[in-house]
């Protein structure tokens, strides 16, 4: 079932972030949202995830769906290692072996048991991507997931996401058209009305 958003409005005080916003996200596909900063991409994600209430409007197609996210900020558990960070959100039945295999697939084989506080920005990003993917969701919200990654890591990580989230709905915020191409996703340009 597609996700259908109709007439969504959200304002923070006087500042209107989303105004009569409507869109349909196809189920099981990757959609990349692009647009200038401040257009409400992150707010849209927050409303869809149920973290921020909308002022008005409706969202259909999210009922009963398991969601997962890569936030704009890493939101890692600083004192825990990469494996523990992934295990925190891992779906039932996913064991250490699977977590280690995925982290290795993302090039983190040498840093599996280092505390997150000692990992570089790019490494932390890949840890939270593995965390999101291994939570095994129906809808993935990826807010600028490739920030801090070099070209090679981006390619490797995009391949990992495409492979593991195949058949599920992936919504990704990006400012880089190259990342849209890497993800082979549908482009949705957000603009002001």
């Amino acid at each position: 079932m597609d996700i259908v958003i109709t007439g969504l409005n959200k304002a923070y005080g006087e500042q209107r972030v989303l105004e009569d916003f409507s869109v349909r996200f196809a189920f099981g596909q990757t959609t990349c949202l692009m647009g200038d900063s401040g257009l409400g991409k992150t707010t849209l994600f927050r409303i869809m995830m149920g973290l921020t209430p909308a002022d008005s409007g409706s969202i259909e197609g999210m009922e009963g769906k398991k969601i997962s996210a890569v936030f704009q900020e890493d939101r890692v558990l600083e004192s825990f290692n990469a494996v523990a960070n992934v295990r925190f959100a891992a779906a039932k039945g996913i064991g250490r072996r699977e977590i280690v295999a995925d982290l290795e697939a993302l090039g983190l084989g040498d840093s599996l048991y280092k505390p997150a506080s000692q990992l570089s920005g790019g490494m932390r990003r890949r840890v939270v991507i593995a965390r999101a993917i291994l939570s095994r969701a129906n809808v993935y919200f990826l807010d600028e997931p490739f920030q801090g990654l070099d070209a090679q890591s981006k390619q490797q990580t995009a391949g990992y996401i495409k492979d593991r989230a195949k058949g599920q709905t992936v919504l990704m915020v990006t400012h880089d058209p190259e990342e849209v191409a890497l993800m082979e996703g549908h482009l949705f340009l957000m603009g002001r009305r």
């Binding site: 973290l51 939101r75 523990a84 925190f88």
Partner: peptide, 18 residues
């Protein structure tokens, strides 16, 4: 972090420990 746990629907026990 609490919000992140909310999104992943992490149980109370894991939230307490992690």
């Amino acid at each position: 972090l609490l919000e992140m746990a909310e999104v992943f629907r992490t149980g109370w026990g894991k939230r307490f420990v992690y």
